[in-house]
Amino acid sequence: MIPVTHFMIISAILFCIGLYAAISKRNAIMVLIGIEFMINAAILNFVAFGAYDKEVNGGQIVALFAIVLAAAGVAVALAIILNVYKYYKTIDPDKIHNLRD
């Protein structure tokens, strides 16, 4: 059986990649993908720890729920990105600093 540590390492690596992508990418799509990475890293952790809950399978259920939510979130995010693009003609998050005021 694969020890739970490995899952955690994988998910940590995934999270870090996602974090890096979300922070550093100059493209909103890539940032979105980074966020997806981080969500999936978290989901992976849920699934891995779900092995210790055989009766109600809380981990798997939360994972499924999270995947659904993430999909919905991505859909919304993509829609926002599309609108942002329509408005600013760019999707570089650095150039969109109207949030400042």
Binding site: I23, S24, V31, P93, I96, H97, L99, R100, D101
Partner: peptide, 14 residues
């Protein structure tokens, strides 16, 4: 801190 850049906020948050 309030640069208006989403990614900066994110760094700060983290």
């Amino acid at each position: 801190f309030q640069s208006g850049r989403v990614q900066h906020y994110m760094i700060t948050m983290i």
